[in-house]
């Protein structure tokens, strides 16, 4: 009996790492899928499309336009690690985007209207040497039926828009207590 028990225990002991390996594999495939979805999202955004964004399920995925498109076309990204399990994942990424603050600071003093600013901004964003900066972002993805979609979060929005929200937060300090 002991010998058989021993063999059974050994069999179980041998199986456990295999089982663990299988589960890790499942989790890994989810992470890989999430990373891939994240890459596809950034790639499509940089190409001027909003594919893969969880747009509340009823909004049209439309091409980007105007200044936001110009900014998106400058986007570079590097997807790093994924963490999480089940239907929610976090993927860390480094996003290099136009440094909006520097671009705004470099607008000439002659800009005295929104229309003039728009033209100047467009010209600045078209410049090959437009200043950029990097953002460390944790991208949140959720599983939806047949794929992963990216949730718009404050840090992601800030990165995609070149620090737009950071600027607003800083300006908001003036009106907070």
């Amino acid at each position: 009996m002991r010998k058989r028990s021993g063999r059974r225990l050994l069999a179980l002991a041998l199986c456990l790492p295999i089982l663990a390996a299988c589960c890790a594999g499942c989790a890994d495939s989810g992470k890989e899928e999430a990373k891939l979805a994240c890459e596809e999202f950034f790639a499509s955004y940089a190409g001027g499309e909003e594919s893969g964004l969880a747009i509340e399920g009823f909004g049209a995925s439309e091409p980007l336009e105007g200044l936001q498109l110009q900014m998106a076309e400058r986007l570079e990204f590097e997807v790093r690690d994924a963490s999480g399990s089940g239907d929610a994942m976090q993927v860390s990424a480094v996003v290099t985007s136009v440094d909006l603050r520097q671009v705004l600071e470099s607008l000439p003093d002659t800009v005295d209207s929104t229309e003039a600013a728009r033209e100047a901004l467009s010209a600045a964003l078209a410049d090959e040497n437009v200043p950029t900066r990097s953002f460390d972002v944790d991208v949140t993805l959720v599983r939806q039926d047949d794929g992963w979609t990216v949730q718009m979060t404050p840090s992601l929005a800030d990165a995609l828009l070149g620090g737009y929200y950071s600027i607003l937060r800083e300006a908001a300090e003036e009106v907070k207590e």
């Binding site: 909004g59 607008l107 003093d109 005295d112 929104t114 728009r118 901004l121 718009m152 937060r169 300006a171």
Partner: peptide
């Protein structure tokens, strides 16, 4: 904080940000 041209530039950019990207400040 940053001058008038910055102010107008900020608004010009804001005009073109889709509502999908709105977040609390």
């Amino acid at each position: 904080k940053w001058g008038n041209s910055f102010k107008y530039g900020l608004l010009a950019f804001a005009d073109e940000v889709s509502p999908k990207y709105l977040i609390p400040i």
